[in-house]
Amino acid sequence: MRPRGGLAAQRVRHAWWMAAPMLVVLAAVGGWPLLRTIWFSVTDSDLSSLGDYAFIGLENYVGEYGLLASPDWWQAVGNTLLFTALSVALETLLGLGVALLLNQPSRLRTLLRAALLVPWAIPTVVSAKMWSWMLHDQFGIVNHHLLALGVIAVPLAWTADPQLSLFSVVLVDVWKATPYMALLILAALQMVPVDCYEAARVDGVPRWQVFRRITLPLIMPGLLVAMIFRTLDALRVFDLIYVMTSNSRDTQSMSVFVREQLIDFGLVGYGSAAATCLFFMIALLSIVAMGLLGKTVERAAR
């Protein structure tokens, strides 16, 4: 009889062989461009002399004109972190509320779920352009209705005013991504055993206590997965911000900063350094988030 340890090792080897083609494809599609980007980040390469560049070490990172000394880079980092924090927090709260409503028995539940997908299904570029027109200070429908209701006295430049532009982008992102969060949370809600609710109903436990002590702990792993996905997606936001506000310093994200350096200025080395920093920031956050998720799942399984 084969020992258990030998059988487990054999299964692991088979799993690696099964995953090998996928890993090779990922290495070719993602690994090689990543290594090239990291290599360009330690050179003085630019578009005008792409084949003639020199190794300069960490000059693009910590040099006199490197990323760490660039106020534009740090503003892009701050904009990205603020955008991520606001959008993920609002999307989580609204998504949880919508998921709780959709989880209630109703004849219209299927229709409501389908309607909920519409904002998320619209391509981001289309959504951004549509909202840019709606938020236009002269002929936008948002200003038109706010003026008619007396909420504002003069038209507001939602995407041009430094005090409003970032929050306008956040609200559009919340409108688009909340359905995604709601569907993920709804999937977690439907995994909660009905027996738990029936026992709480028999004992006369108030609804708030049922949510706090039963629903929330049981859906926490799914909720964390949804938050992690949205956080990683928000950190690399590009199309929404670029379409609505272009290269404005007030809303420029790290991805938009990378695009500006690579395309507008032709600084391949400098732009690659910014892209490398963005990659390692997201990779580090992913590792921390996966560790936190693993501990949460273990705690929930006890």
Rank of each mutant, 00 (worst) to 15 (best):
G150I: 15
M134S: 07
A89E: 08
M22T: 15
M134T: 05
T215N: 03
D233T: 15
L67P: 00
L23A: 11
M22K: 03
A182H: 06
A15F: 13
P193V: 14
R201W: 02
W131S: 01
V169N: 03
L232E: 07
F257Q: 02
A15E: 11
V243Q: 03
M134D: 01
G63D: 02
F55D: 03
V142K: 09
G204H: 02
T124I: 15
A85I: 13
V169R: 03
S248W: 07
Q190F: 11
R302V: 10
M134L: 15
F55N: 01
V142S: 04
G150S: 09
A289P: 02
I185V: 15
V243I: 15
A188I: 01
D137Q: 12
W208M: 11
M130G: 14
S255L: 10
L117T: 13
M244G: 01
Y197Q: 00
V243E: 03
V268E: 05
R13S: 07
S87T: 15
E298Y: 11
A20N: 06
G51H: 06
L183P: 00
L186Q: 00
G30C: 12
L267G: 02
L166K: 03
L50T: 14
S246N: 15
D137A: 11
V243P: 01
D264E: 14
G222F: 02
V118Y: 04
R249P: 04
I219W: 00
L232W: 06
M181N: 02
G78M: 08
D137V: 14
V25C: 08
A234N: 02
L50A: 12
N79M: 13
D264G: 05
L292R: 12
C196V: 15
T80N: 03
N60Y: 06
L278T: 05
N79P: 00
Q252V: 11
T43F: 05
L267R: 09
E260Y: 13
A54V: 13
I122K: 04
K176Q: 09
S70F: 07
L224F: 04
P105I: 14
T276N: 05
N103S: 08
G222T: 07
A160I: 13
S168H: 10
